[in-house]
Nucleic acid binder design. Sequence first.
DNA 1: TCACAAATGAAAATGATTTTCATTTCCATA
DNA 2: TATGGAAATGAAAATCATTTTCATTTGTGA
Lengths: 121, 121
Amino acid sequence: MSRSNPRVLSTLERAGGFASAQEVYRLMQREGESIGLTTVYRSLQSLVNDKIVDVLRRDDGEAIYRLCGDAHHHHLVCKGCGDTVEIEGGAIEKWALNVAKDHGFREVGHTAEIFGLCSKC
Amino acid sequence: MSRSNPRVLSTLERAGGFASAQEVYRLMQREGESIGLTTVYRSLQSLVNDKIVDVLRRDDGEAIYRLCGDAHHHHLVCKGCGDTVEIEGGAIEKWALNVAKDHGFREVGHTAEIFGLCSKC
DNA sequence: TCACAAATGAAAATGATTTTCATTTCCATA
DNA sequence: TATGGAAATGAAAATCATTTTCATTTGTGA
């Protein structure tokens, strides 16, 4: 394992808290930082593990990393522009728990994402 | 442009209306169909253009194709043995729609999956 | 200073997807 | 029935993000 290179997180922040690994890398290069693409990927993965950033997917499949609050939440993502809204999932939490219990499951978790076209697209 | 090879659609249907291009290809091969991977990709793209199938992304970024208008369901997956239960998502459908509409989104879709440990594990 | 673990990054490997391009299949019309 | 061109096909190469490998460098505690 490796710890995250702090410059990666700071760059992601400067990028508006929303960028792909390749973009973070290019940004750092442009700013004269000396870093390898491998390290960028490793750092971002590490940040994801530590729940400091979220990872989503663009329509073309490229992973985009995004700073996130620590509360458990879900995303409403625009298929057009990639704009993302963090949403509360109260209803889903209960649904997931109930369904799982009905089937005798323990240690329950879930994933959920909503996507569509935002009003601007 | 090219039209969709009908065998691709029929295979996607047989796959439960939910599969990646690679999976459709492997399935057709296994069933003795003679078809190229390129044609599978082109056919799926064409089906997407014609709004006959939807395209989503797996967590690993692989594109998965799904028949539109298919009554879709969700999965309850055991982290231990991988056992999967198909579940109805009535509550989620409404939740997703409402949340999306609240934010002015159109053409709304969603993904949701529940995981945990089943009673045997 | 020494030894060793962690971090780094260049280059190669991987895997999905797209592009290229030569060939084959269709089909309408002469 | 022949023929010419458009559409379809697929093998192989190209792309591109991401991961892996591995040799080197850096940092740290003894």
